[in-house]
Lab assay of single mutants.
Amino acid sequence: NQASVVANQLIPINTALTLVMMRSEVVTPVGIPAEDIPRLVSMQVSRAVPLGTTLMPDMVKGYA
């Protein structure tokens, strides 16, 4: 089972991601792979992401 990136806190719209905002977790459906966490740092979210939400490619500007 592949771990995905999950929000560790509420991430407001247009916030630049930092390591403390993200954790890896095995979830369904699968989201952005956990190994991409270093690449996500400083990228902005395109919408508010609630705590515990799996990050999907369309939620991060410039990821897809």
Rank of each mutant, 00 (worst) to 15 (best):
L55R: 00
L19Q: 10
T15R: 07
Q44N: 08
E25S: 11
K61T: 11
Y63H: 05
A3L: 15
P38F: 14
V60K: 00
G52Y: 04
S46R: 13
V45D: 01
M43Y: 13
A48R: 12
I32M: 03
A34Y: 06
V60G: 01
G31W: 02
N1F: 10
S24E: 09
V26I: 14
D36A: 15
A7L: 03
V60I: 07
V60P: 01
L40H: 02
P33C: 04
A64G: 09
E25P: 01
R23D: 05
R47E: 10
V60D: 02
I37K: 06
T18H: 05
L55N: 01
A7K: 01
G62L: 10
S4A: 03
L40V: 05
V30A: 14
P38A: 14
R47C: 04
V6I: 15
I13A: 14
P57S: 09
L10H: 11
A3M: 10
M43A: 07
T53R: 13
G52T: 02
P12K: 07
A7C: 03
Y63K: 03
A34Q: 06
T18N: 06
A48G: 08
D58C: 05
V26N: 15
D36H: 14
G31I: 02
L40F: 02
R47D: 06
E35C: 04
D36I: 07
R39F: 06
L17P: 02
K61F: 12
M59S: 08
T15Q: 07
L51V: 11
V5Q: 00
G62Q: 09
D58Q: 10
V60H: 00
S42K: 10
E25F: 05
L19T: 14
N14Y: 08
G31H: 01
M56W: 05
V30M: 13
P29T: 06
M43T: 04
V26S: 12
V45I: 07
V45Y: 00
M43H: 10
N8G: 12
P33Y: 14
P29L: 05
L51S: 12
A16R: 10
I37P: 01
L10K: 10
S24C: 04
K61R: 14
Q2H: 15
R47Q: 14
S4N: 01
A64H: 15
G62K: 07
A64W: 06
Q44P: 08
S4Y: 03
K61E: 12
N8L: 06
R39N: 07
M21D: 06
T28Q: 09
I11E: 00
S42W: 07
R23K: 09
T54A: 05
Y63C: 03
G62E: 09
I11Q: 01
V30T: 15
P12W: 04
Y63W: 14
Q2C: 04
M56S: 09
G31L: 02
I37D: 00
A64K: 04
P50V: 06
S46D: 11
N1I: 14
D58T: 11
V45E: 01
P50M: 07
R47L: 13
M21R: 03
L40R: 01
R23E: 05
L51M: 08
S4K: 02
V60N: 01
K61G: 07
S24F: 07
D36G: 07
M56N: 09
S42C: 04
Q2W: 14
S42D: 15
I37L: 14
A48E: 13
P12I: 06
Q44C: 04
V6P: 00
P29G: 04
L17H: 00
V41P: 02
T53G: 15
Q9S: 08
M21G: 03
K61W: 13
V26P: 07
G52I: 02
V60Y: 01
A64C: 04
T15W: 05
G52Q: 04
V60F: 05
R47H: 14
P38W: 09
P50K: 12
N14Q: 09
M59N: 06
V49A: 06
I13H: 06
T15F: 05
N1S: 15
A7F: 02
G52D: 10
V30Y: 14
V41S: 04
V26L: 10
V49D: 02
Y63D: 03
T53V: 13
S4Q: 01
G52H: 14
P50Q: 11
G52E: 05
Y63S: 04
L19E: 07
P57Q: 07
Q9V: 11
L19D: 11
P33Q: 06
A16G: 09
A16C: 04
V30H: 14
Q44S: 09
P12M: 12
N14G: 14
V60Q: 01
A7T: 10
A34R: 05
L40N: 00
L55I: 11
K61Y: 13
R39E: 08
P50W: 06
D36C: 05
A48I: 08
G31R: 02
T18A: 07
T54K: 05
P57W: 09
N1G: 09
R39A: 09
G31A: 03
M21C: 03
A7R: 00
L10T: 15
A3I: 09
Q9C: 05
P57F: 08
V27W: 03
K61L: 12
L51N: 15
V30P: 14
V5P: 01
I13T: 12
V49C: 04
D58E: 08
M22G: 00
T18D: 10
L17N: 00
L17R: 00
M21W: 02
D58W: 11
A3Y: 14
D58V: 09
P29A: 05
Y63I: 04
I11L: 11
I37M: 13
I11Y: 01
V30R: 14
A48P: 11
M43C: 04
Q9R: 11
I11W: 02
E25T: 10
M22K: 00
P38C: 04
V20A: 11
I37T: 08
T54G: 02
T54Y: 02
V5K: 01
R47F: 07
V27S: 05
S42Q: 08
P57I: 06
T15L: 05
G62N: 15
V41C: 03
I32D: 01
S24I: 08
M21F: 05
I11P: 01
E25D: 09
V41I: 11
A16I: 11
Q44A: 14
V26M: 14
Q2T: 14
L17F: 02
S46P: 03
T54M: 03
T18V: 06
T28F: 10
E35H: 14
I13L: 14
L10V: 08
V49Q: 02
T53F: 10
P29V: 05
G52F: 05
P12H: 07
S46W: 13
G62C: 03
Q9F: 12
I11N: 01
V45A: 06
L10M: 11
V27M: 08
A34S: 12
L55Y: 01
I13V: 12
P12D: 09
V6R: 04
D58I: 09
L17I: 13
A34L: 04
L10P: 11
M59K: 02
V49W: 02
